[in-house]
Amino acid sequence: MLACVIESAGKLAVVPKPDPEPGPGEVAVDIVYGGICGSDLHYYHDGAAGEFVIREPLVVGHEVVGRVGVIGEGVTGIEVGTPVAVHPAQVCGECEDCTAGRPQLCASSRYLGSAAHFPHIQGGFTQRLVVGAGRAVPLPDGMSLRRAALSEPFSVAYHAVRRAGELTGRSVLVTGAGPIGCLAVAAAREAGAETIYASDLTDYALAQAKQMGADVLLRADHPDDPAWPAKVDVAIEASGSGPGLNTCIRTVRRAGTVVQVGILPPGMTSVLGNALVNKEIELLGSWRFHDEFADAIGMLADRIDAEPLISHEFPLADARAAFDTASDRTTACKVLLQIADPEAVVTG
């Protein structure tokens, strides 16, 4: 089989790998689509995502969907050919965080396509992926694999919006209108937010946020625009930048809430610390997700049409062109790798 591998900054290739076979309790998923995430792009350009540095060749990708190809011993309740979205995290289930209902914080979590541990956790941009059967989540009837490819990033955005608390009737600012920011707009709209502001540095990204339900579009490089709100109840920082975070701190009301979901650059980030104090702002982190995955899939299937965010598709063989395209935020939003024919029939 073929897989998309990054060895270090700028060194990306599609290479052959041994075909994996599922063990007891596992299934092999024939991957159809993989969405390129911001962390994948960081591995591509920098050889690292945040604090996680590539130390061995890494199959990247964690936003993957496909069809069950082979079923391992002892697996019941799922059939060959079932379309599934793959939950990217394998947690221990026994640590303090797992047992306290915070499995997304499990220190032993093995997340697809991550250099957080060594050996690295190989990812999903591959023709066949073996995972525990419980991580292959069947799609609702009629849901296309293309739409389901947004399940993982929408789960990230949905978790961030849940971290913000009750949003019914509230005003929300989302800084950064990349895929996560746009999906946070959609999740905030679904949660009942009254007015949603979205900011970004490009008009293209803001147009995507508009499609997801943003009411007011703001250029981050035009701070004097009178459309900027004097204050908002909640701010969700999805740009992964210090200026974006400080915009949130500056704009949120006294006793308001800021949720940081964008991954900031490695090391220290300067923030408006005194505003945190004298406005008694709640500053919350939001890390991935866990139990929200199935709910997020259901919302995408039934109520939220996020497919307009998919701007490009490339075959796996053209992975480098796909990564280069995804890196240009003036023309691309969510870029998919098509790893197999979405209309193919799996027979085992």
Rank of each mutant, 00 (worst) to 15 (best):
C98Q: 04
Q90Y: 11
R67C: 11
G142H: 07
G38H: 08
R55Y: 13
V86N: 04
V91E: 09
D46G: 02
S144G: 06
V156E: 13
F154P: 03
A115S: 10
A49N: 14
A157E: 15
E63H: 13
A115T: 12
R55W: 13
L129G: 03
P83N: 12
L112G: 11
G81H: 08
R146E: 15
G66R: 00
T76L: 01
P57I: 05
D141H: 09
G66P: 04
H120M: 08
R110Y: 13
S151F: 10
G72P: 15
L112T: 13
E73F: 12
F52A: 09
A100V: 01
G123R: 08
V53E: 09
R147F: 06
D40H: 02
E96S: 10
C92K: 01
F154W: 13
R67I: 02
G124Q: 09
P140T: 08
P57K: 10
P103L: 01
L139Y: 11
L105I: 02
P103K: 00
D46P: 06
E96Q: 05
I54F: 14
V131N: 00
L150D: 15
A148K: 07
E94C: 05
P83L: 05
E152I: 00
E73C: 06
E94D: 13
R147G: 08
P140N: 05
A133R: 04
E152F: 09
G101P: 05
A48D: 05
A107T: 11
P119D: 13
V60H: 13
I71G: 02
G47I: 10
C95A: 09
A157C: 09
A85V: 00
H159N: 15
L145G: 07
G142F: 10
A133W: 02
G93L: 01
A133M: 04
V161W: 07
V59T: 14
L58W: 15
I36S: 15
E51P: 15
F118V: 06
G101V: 03
C92N: 06
G66V: 06
I71A: 00
S155T: 12
A89V: 07
T126V: 11
L150F: 15
G74H: 11
H120A: 14
G134V: 00
L139N: 11
I121T: 14
E56A: 08
V80Y: 15
H62T: 12
P140M: 04
A49S: 15
I71R: 02
A100L: 00
V68M: 00
R147K: 08
H120C: 10
G123K: 03
A116K: 12
P83K: 01
E56I: 03
V131E: 03
A115F: 07
D40V: 01
D40M: 01
P57G: 08
V59F: 08
V75R: 05
G93T: 02
L139M: 05
G38D: 04
Q122H: 15
L139S: 08
P119T: 13
L58E: 14
L129A: 03
T126L: 00
R110T: 11
V68A: 00
Q127M: 11
V64I: 15
P138A: 04
I78M: 03
R146L: 11
V64E: 14
S109E: 06
G38L: 00
M143N: 12
F118R: 02
S155I: 03
C37S: 05
P83Y: 11
G113E: 11
